[in-house]
Design a protein around this nucleic acid. Sequence first.
RNA 1: GCUGAAGUGGUGGAAUUGGUAGACACGCUGGACUUAAAAUCCAGUGGUCAGUAAUGGCCGUGCGGGUUCAAGUCCCGCCUUCAGUACCA
Length: 1116
Amino acid sequence: MQYNHQEIEKNWQKFWAENQTFKAENHSEKPKYYVLDMFPYPSGAGLHVGHPLGYIASDIYARYKRHKGFNVLHPQGYDSFGLPAEQYAIQTGQHPAKTTEENIKTYRRQLDQIGFSFDWSREVRTSSPEYYKWTQWIFIQLFNSWYNKDTDKAEDIAGLEKIFKKEGNTTVNAACDEDIVSFSSDEWKAFTKTKQEEILLNYRLTFLSDTEVNWCPALGTVLANDEIVNGVSERGSHPVIRKKMTQWSMRISAYAQRLLDGLEKIDWPQPLKDSQTNWIGRSQGAMVSFDVATGDEKTTSEVKLSYKELEALKELRQNLSKAETTLWYELKNKKGASKFRKKYTIGTFLVDYVCLAKNIIVEFSGKEEEAARTAYFTKEGFNIVRFTDQEILKNVLGVVSKINAAIQFSKPVEKTELAVVAKKENQYKIGVFTTRPDTIFGVSFMTLAPEHELVAKITTDAQKAEVENYIKATSKRSERDRMADVKTISGAFTGAFAIHPFSGDKVQIWIGDYVLAGYGTGAVMAVPCGDQRDFDFAKKFGIPIPNIFENVDISEEAHSGKDGTKIANSDFLSGLKYKKALKLSIFELEKRGFGYGKINYRLRDAVFSRQRYWGEPFPVYYKDGMPQMIDEKHLPIVLPEVRNYLPTEDGKPPLGNATEWAWDSRGKKVVSIEKLKNKTVFPLELNTMPGWAGSSWYFNRYMDATNSEEFASKESMEYWQDVDLYIGGSEHATGHLLYARFWQKFLFDKGIVPVDEFAKKLINQGMILGTSAFVYKATAFVKNGCAIDKSNDDVIEKIPTVFVSKNVFNSDDEFETVVKEYLLDNKLLDPNFADLVMITKTAIHADVSLVNSSDELDVDAFKNHALNADFINAEFILEDGKYEVSREVEKMSKSKYNVVNPDDIVAEYGADALRLFEMFLGPLEQTKPWKTSGISGVSSFLKKLWKLYFNEETFEVSDDKATKEELKVLHKTIKKVQEDIENFSFNTSVSTFMIAVNDLTALKCKKREILEPLLVLLSPYAPHITEELYSKLGHIESISTVDFPVFDAKHLIESSKNYPISFNGKMRFTLDLSLDLSKDEIEKAVLENERTIAQLEGNAPKKVIIVPGKIVNIVS
RNA sequence: GCUGAAGUGGUGGAAUUGGUAGACACGCUGGACUUAAAAUCCAGUGGUCAGUAAUGGCCGUGCGGGUUCAAGUCCCGCCUUCAGUACCA
């Protein structure tokens, strides 16, 4: 009987669908296993053979886990909001919902015919209101939360309001905007409601802010950093410019450290983790404040402690008395309080505790010179609180509350006024972030970003023109130019100087576009001897380059290494190595109040608004300009209909075209914009959410996909917990996978999900590349500079398009000769003009469907191809009557005409063959070119397998006892296949199946004892054929949950081994020896062998190495 | 520049802990079946040298060193390709 894949596959796909074979239960005795694919965006092009690669791998694993007795969740759905559908809508006027629906149908049909074991009852679509209801709901949760750095988690915003009411914002340690003014509880209470909301927005995890965004004019929307590749948009490669806009943002930066830490406990590929680490970009350093010089500087003469004294101080800090420890413990753990430091030097005095932010000194009473201390501290602007040992040991909480009171009512001392006066003449400070505060004595100038707000204020009149010109010139350069051209060094001197905080030296302040406005403070302290960019800048503008490294030559380039180098010419840092110098420099900065240690992250808050139609609407309306959340019980807020999908005439997003898009706060529903006149009707948000909104939590939804009451039920999340295996492309490393981890951590903080990492293990499947086909087209030109009577066009016009087969020529010159000869022979070129004509070669893509496996082009089909209308009359120069194309491996894409559609493969060879072949191509993680030629191998394997169960036309499997040899083949296969699946090495197990079938065919094995377990082994890979044969063996149930065969080592025990006999490590021959032999017996047997004697040529062996069961090596 | 991955026949790739390099498959060559083709089956297939042949010698996992009885695998130094990232202070 013939193996008819079409019929078999159709039947079983129907069987699975009707019997809901792969439906997962939320309650089960079995252990759970959750296998997930990154869900696809349903594009109009449908699937190409690259898409199913990961799906096939995960499907094999899911099916394997079912055989192993797991309750497997293996769902699929669609990331169905997105730009392409909307771009298509703009072009054709078709509603994106309609095209999306159609595309999904195609995807579903294509996925079904490959035989995936998806539980379709749990399908999700991010664009369906039942789904995005919960995306909106999560948005509201984010809006109603703030990040408490003390508890290190997200908390309810109501809690923050309570604190504000009680004690203002000074004790709050939150992830928030940098420039927040502090206020007391009274001030808070006095603020208007709008003002309060404005302040709260600075703390919320999703917030509105004016930010510099990446605006893409061609797409009419902003883009996130990860949606920009090489300065242009990822989708469509349109230019992107910087623009300031009011946007929703997500405070992902609050989670920077936890996102970094979390990487350690998840089993994800190292390169992926590395790129997330890189993207988060943690750098440890210090913030340093430089005063801008006013002209009459006097160098500060501070008391400086020697290094030895500092070391002594450090020790003192570690050996506290009991009372000291008790108080320190309380101060340290005082929630939300300002930071206290212990054993700190103020001037020449050592104080017990100090809070620099609040100017409070806490001391034990009874110190020497108490009066002098008080006088000095007061002069410096500190409040002093003194306690005795007894007070603390008796009632430490009382002491703490006294300290709190002192902080809260910290009466401004007279000094404050002095400070203000002092500040007036010295009003500007430049803050910089540096990772190398140890090199601070190497600072010889500072550079500000051209956009820095101080530039206008500090530039001297003399330099004004130059600076303004420079700013103008740089702002013209696009982001892309700036990135492409890193080599050009440019800048301008502001004429102003800064005061070096330690040396008091005046250093020049420059502006330069190598400093980015968006990173750190937008200013750098330039250390030309230690940083190449600073070095180049200094060289170019003739700024001094002081050397602060011991025995390092910096005449040619900066010295950026840190290990092993000692600092020199640096006052108290001289003679120290990097690590110590770094610590000491930060310590000194803090002590003297010029700066503090800080950790900076490159990761920036994610812009969450898109000026597009086809995305989730925000559940937000505006009252007095302040955003208001719509109560969750009114969700979902459904995407309204619009007249067209373009921005409105006055530049509002497409939702501005909607007529039904206002919120009736009394009727609690969306109403017509005409009702906006009413006092209780408000405008709704016009932006929509970005593509990553829906994909940041969908894995949780699958656990309980049809729940209309909740995001997912507590029980279902308790049961499924997290994804055990997640498979998808590495292109999502810094987009989807980072945002999804962020949301998961947030949801975990809020007690909504049970785990804070959503995927235990992740595998990146490699890309499948296309094998493009090229044809060589000849283009004729007339050489310049030759005067002839006839118009040049005439000569060219007669020449048809000519294509030349690949092997007809070896060089461009030869190409020209061949074409010219051809034209002359065919009278297509007048011999008189032959010398005037120049022929050049152009390689153009030919559709791969027109090329057979021997690289021969179907010339007629090519001429008549829809895209080749220009070539309908083209001439072809053939070789041996055939036209051969050249091949090149490229990314599979429509524009390269190298896309292979799985539908064709399935129709011709079947889904099982496609599944096997995609796995057989090579390791899952590796990128590999698609070459259809190899598919005949797996196809004939399936036919051979089929034949094992048949005797000509009749199905024939016997119940005879299997032979030792047959059992060995089976168990070898069980062992290898099981190991391979567990190691995700699917390509090698396909080979193993081939070997098994070849062996069993040779043994003429027709026994159920062997052939039935073989089907179970193969069923994850080729589910249709195995179901069919399994049912022919007399089973009614599906093969999908049959126990995986158990490996029994006893079948593999050998009595002898074919030993490789090596001489000096080179294998010369093999020798069959019993495995019972001892080392000595082996040696004897080998040395007696005539071939050994022949090899040795009479020499005595120096040494004989015997590894029993493995190898014999003779050293001579 | 930085980070990561990878270099094995004509091709995709295999080689689990250092122990017979090239499994399995494609392609190619020859043969069988056929009027012929397709399909199927059989044999051969890393290079090179010697031999009519059986067979045997030498070379061989990007390059150069090293460790070891033994290296595709481990160590040191380079080269190339691909991917990600890029003035991050």
